[in-house]
């Protein structure tokens, strides 16, 4: 489903060089990195779920900071679809989180605008809510390799994960669509320790999406949840850029890293994502 196989090839290049050299090594170093002005970071999602959709506002920190990013607590946040405007209020029990008072559902075809005022800074962003295709199903398939050759370096818990997760859907060929897939194991996000993002551009994808293997493995009894979001082209660009940043090798074989392009103006990092969403969940069976 990752529409960009080259990402893994770049990583393969480095692995290969390392494997060939036999002596290639890596270790942690501490660098003297420059200090920068903290930037406003917007993490906002509005979906077709009837829910109190969130806008989370924080600031960037120094690279070596051990603390969570500092929340912004005094912003004025509104969202509008041109007919209704929702005021998002700061939640003192969850610093940095802004929610509307009442739940509402985003509607397909509407254009939503976000407006944030904080400390004299005006940040705006907008996107159209696009329809998403249905997920036909998700299914488990036994990874016989992991059953036959258990990895002795893994913990028992890790070794028990022998099911891979397959994804099935129909991709409408008459529209230009972009997708984001989020995946969970027992309610926890599966994203390769914060390094993997599944997005797709339908340009090189056919109609039948049958049995695409998703990330990681599941143990018997684990609950898998898969969410598929429609995203705009701009949001797709943002996530592709995010992949560049997360899987970067410092610009040797991968592109020189740069902050992701986004649909926000006013000098903020992050994205205002507006999505239709579908979900499927399943429980991993006992292996026969």
């Amino acid at each position: 489903m990752k529409s960009r196989p080259i990402i893994s090839i770049r990583q393969a290049v480095l692995l290969l060089l390392a494997a060939l050299a036999g002596t290639a090594c890596e270790k942690t170093v501490v660098l003297d990195l420059k200090q920068t002005e903290p930037q406003v970071v917007v993490d906002a999602l509005l979906t077709t779920d009837t829910a109190r959709h969130y806008v989370r506002l924080t600031r960037s920190t120094d690279f070596y900071s051990r603390n969570p990013p500092p929340p912004i607590t005094d912003a004025r946040v509104t969202v509008t679809d041109g007919q209704t405007t929702w005021d998002y209020r700061h939640q003192p029990d969850r610093p940095g989180w802004y929610l509307p008072d009442q739940p509402f559902a985003g509607r397909v075809g509407r254009f939503y605008r976000l407006r944030i005022e904080t400390n004299g800074q005006l940040i705006e962003g907008g996107d159209e809510l696009l329809r998403v295709a249905d997920i036909d199903s998700i299914r488990f398939e036994l990874d016989t390799d992991r059953v036959d050759n258990p990895n002795s370096e893994e913990t028992d818990e890790q070794r028990a994960r022998v099911w891979s997760l397959l994804f099935y859907a129909r991709e409408p060929q008459d529209t230009r669509d972009f997708y984001l897939i989020k995946q969970y194991r027992n309610g926890r996000r599966v994203d390769g320790n914060g390094t993997q993002v599944l997005v797709s551009d339908d340009e090189i994808i056919g109609e039948a999406i049958d049995g695409v293997q998703l990330l990681d493995r599941y143990a018997p009894g684990d609950t898998a949840l898969v969410e598929m979001f429609s995203i705009s082209r701009t949001a797709y660009v943002f996530y592709s850029d995010l992949i560049n940043v997360l899987s970067n090798d410092g610009g040797m074989f991968s592109p020189i890293p740069a902050d992701p392009r986004s649909n926000l103006t006013g000098g903020a990092l992050g994205l205002f994502q507006v999505s239709d969403v579908r979900r499927r969940s399943a429980v991993a069976p006992q292996p026969r």
């Binding site: 930037q39 970071v41 995010l242 740069a258 990092l269 992050g270």
Partner: peptide, 18 residues
């Protein structure tokens, strides 16, 4: 080389800031 001058948090990702 282009290296992070900071970091930030987005949707659970801990992202380098350039």
């Amino acid at each position: 080389i282009t290296l992070a001058q900071g970091r930030y948090s987005f949707d659970g990702y801990n992202v380098d800031y350039f």
